[in-house]
Every structure is written in C-alpha cells, then in structure tokens.
Design a protein around this nucleic acid. Structure first.
Lengths: 221, 221
DNA sequence: GGTCCGTTCAGGGTTTTTCCCGGATCCACC
DNA sequence: GGTGGATCCGGGAAAAACCCTGAACGGACC
C-alpha cells in the first residue's frame, strides 16, 4: 500500500488484556510489521523494551497497577530513538496531555480501525506525530499555551541538578562514599539521590544507571 | 627538532619516587609534551589513565607494592589507543619480556638520556616499538620463538569464555542470582567469575565492568 | 501564610557485592 | 603420571547497595 518498508518497523505491544494484545500483534504481523515483543504491564514493558529496542511501542494507558504514563516516560528516557504510540480506550484530554508530556509521539483511541492503526504505526515510525481526529488540535494548543519550552523533544527525564551530579559520578563507578567526599555530602544523601534517580528512570541498580548515563552522554562532560 | 607536533602528545608518568617522577614530568613539559597526569602506584595509574586517556604512559616497573606489569596490562586492556612505554632501572630480560607480554609498546632503561627519552616518547606515540639497544633483538627473537600468535597486538585481556559470558550479563545490569539462573549455575560461581574478572582487569566494581564491556563492544553481541 | 519541591541528613532493615579462602572435577600438555 | 588452567561449588565476613521512612531547611509560587 504505502511506499514504506514495513518489514523494517519493529513493534512492541503493551496491554494488560491478553486478547486485545494478541489481536493487535496478529493484525500488525499480518500487515508486515515485525512484532518483536509484547508486555502485560509497565514494568515488563520498560525492561523488555530496553532489550528489544523496538522502533515503536504501542502503549495502553490503563495498565492495572502500573501506569502506562510512567512506562512511557521511562521508555522514551531510556531509548530516545524509540517512539511510543499510545493506544487508549479513553480520549480524555488530560490523559492525552499527560501521555504527550511523558514523551508519547502519538495518541490513538482504541475505536480506531485496523487500517488506521497500521497507518498510525507507520507514520509514528517515520517520526510524524499521530493523533486521533480532534486531539491534534488540543495538543497543539497546549504546546502554544506552554510556549516556554523552546525546543522540547520527549521531555528530558526530570532529574534535578543534584541528581544529575550524582549520576555522573555513579556512572564512573564511584561508590556513594567516594561521591559524598567529592561533593562534600553525607553518603546517605548521595544514596538518596541515587534512589530517587532509580525511581524516576525506573531502573534497578547502578549498572543500569551507568548505561543510561553513557547512552545520554552524561558521563563525558 | 623532529617534525612531529609534540604539543599534541599527552603523557602520564607513573613512578613511586616523587623526585624522579617530577623530574621526568618537567623534562617532558619543557620539551613540549602535554604531561596530563602523574601517578605514584599502579592502582592510581590505572584509575587516572582511564580518566585522562593519555597517548603515552611512562611506566616504572618497580612500584613498591603494586606491579607495573599488572598496571600495564590493565591500562592497555582498558585503553587500546594508549601506549605504555616502560621505563625501568633494570634491563633484565625477563622483566622486558613480561612487560611486552603485558602490552607495553616499548622498554627503556632509566640510564637513558633526556634526549633519548624525548625521542622514545615521540616514537612510541607514533606507534613505533621502542627498545633500549640490545633489547630489541631480544624481543624480536622471543616473538619468533613463540611464532604461534599470528596477529597479537597488546594481548587481548585474558578473560576465559565463562568470564566473558558473565561479564556480558553483568554489563546488562543483572545481579549474580539472575545471571546464575540464566547460565544454570550457583550464584557463588557467578560471583567468583566476577571477582576474577575484576582482578584481571584491575577494576573494582560492576559499574566499571559495565563500562569496560561497553567500551569493548562486549554488551551488544 | 501555606504549599510544594529540592536538598540535606539519618535510622533500620534486607539484599547484593566485594574480597578472601578452601576444595573438587575435567582436560590438555609435558 | 604430574602440573596447571578452566570450571564449578561452597564458607565467612565486611562493605556497599538497595528500599522505605521521617525530618529539617530554604526558596519559589499562590
């Protein structure tokens, strides 16, 4: 149909309903996409996406316990080249804006047809923002209203200055005590910064922090 | 004198005698080299060289407790583009061969004159192997005698297959228990492999291991 | 004034890592 | 047959990391 090579677009599907999840996955596969992975919740999504590095993540917002928004934030933070296309039952304005703020590249309501979905994934992979009719205007208006973020992108993961300081040293392989000495702090404070950074980025240990820092060039400067 | 741009050659001086160390550093500076760092022992040398990434490391072999050979091995393993020029009081054949096996690009006895030193550092930076008269033949003969290492280079850091397996997973941020499950091992065994790898590469924790793995492409494959 | 957030410190607990040591098997090489 | 390396398993102990909690201060913002 379109001129894009769909076989090169790798996709991950995140949804807590197995039926819907597999249905979407089959649809996409039949349409030539490379469905590399599926995940039932946010935690798994974050973990698996880091391993699989799909081009596009189809993310349900309403994921039982873990929030799709948090997962979206973590994924776009960890994998700048991966696009997250939110597929949600609701078309709530607040949900849409939250998702976009978290780094989503598009927002589709689940009532969309299969052909709409295929088209949306293709366009998302190509870098176009995709929004269900009526929502594009909303997001655009909101952008204008904010007006203060000159060049945005998927929201630089909101680490505080101190957290960034600590992260840099963690990425060099220093212990909390060594960092504390360097920054003239208590090692407990350093550990707290590490903890809050782990939470914000949805990572689980210092090695993952180091990889994150390296991928984002936080360690060179 | 020579046509090479000395101001571009960065050097680190490793020696446990402050007087000698500073004397050499001053000599080199006066001759236009960029002496970026000095270190009094092997541990500091390994640590600092990773941060500074000098073109040439002037390494004393006889460093109190820590061995200059070990430091040489660790530095050449971690920084393939950094050359280690050994500056030793002794001209012992076994010392020379050990140093070369550890990755040294050259070997100079300390009785060398300042001009010889300057010349040696320049040639080392240019990639030439530099040896005090009489030692070049020794090393060449030894190479021929070994004859079985087809293309050597600075000795690929001698990690065993299992250690490399474990390292790959460590670099992904997995704990010893997770790796143990993956490789069907006891977590104590995994920890032992981590330990021996740390020793061999003269690193001190998993974050440094991860950085090593990433720098050497061990994590992608 | 009140509230939120960033930064700092700390207690208290569990888990993991780091470091040292030992022993066992297998296999290759001399 | 001995020797050494790679691989495996384990004990013990100290350090570090991980995770949650509360608390204090100052600055920004309403």
């Amino acid at each position: 149909m379109t001129g894009v090579d769909k076989s090169k677009v790798s996709v991950m599907v995140v949804d807590d309903h197995p039926i819907w999840r597999d249905g979407v996955a089959r649809d996409l596969t039949e349409n030539g996409f490379d469905v590399r992975a599926t995940a039932p919740d946010g935690d798994a999504a974050v973990r698996i996406s880091r391993a699989v590095r799909p081009d596009v993540v189809l993310m349900d917002l309403n994921l039982g316990e873990t929030s799709g928004v948090d997962a979206t934030r973590a994924i776009t933070a960890a994998l700048p080249s991966t696009k997250v296309l939110v597929l949600s039952a609701s078309g709530e304005h607040s949900d849409v804006l939250e998702a976009v703020k978290a780094g989503a590249s598009g927002y589709l309501v689940k009532s969309a047809s299969a052909t709409e979905l295929v088209d949306a994934v293709l366009r998302t992979a190509a870098g176009d923002p995709v929004f269900t009719a009526g929502l594009a205007g909303l997001v655009l208006g909101e952008y204008r209203r904010m007006a203060d973020s000159p060049s945005e992108g998927p929201q630089p993961p909101q680490l505080t200055e101190r957290e960034t300081d600590v992260l840099r040293f963690v990425a060099k392989g220093m212990t909390a005590r060594q960092i504390a000495e360097k920054l003239v702090l208590s090692h407990r404070t350093v550990e707290n910064h590490v903890q809050s950074t782990l939470r914000k980025l949805q990572l689980h240990n210092r090695v993952e922090l180091a990889r994150y820092a390296i991928e984002h060039g936080l360690d060179e400067e």
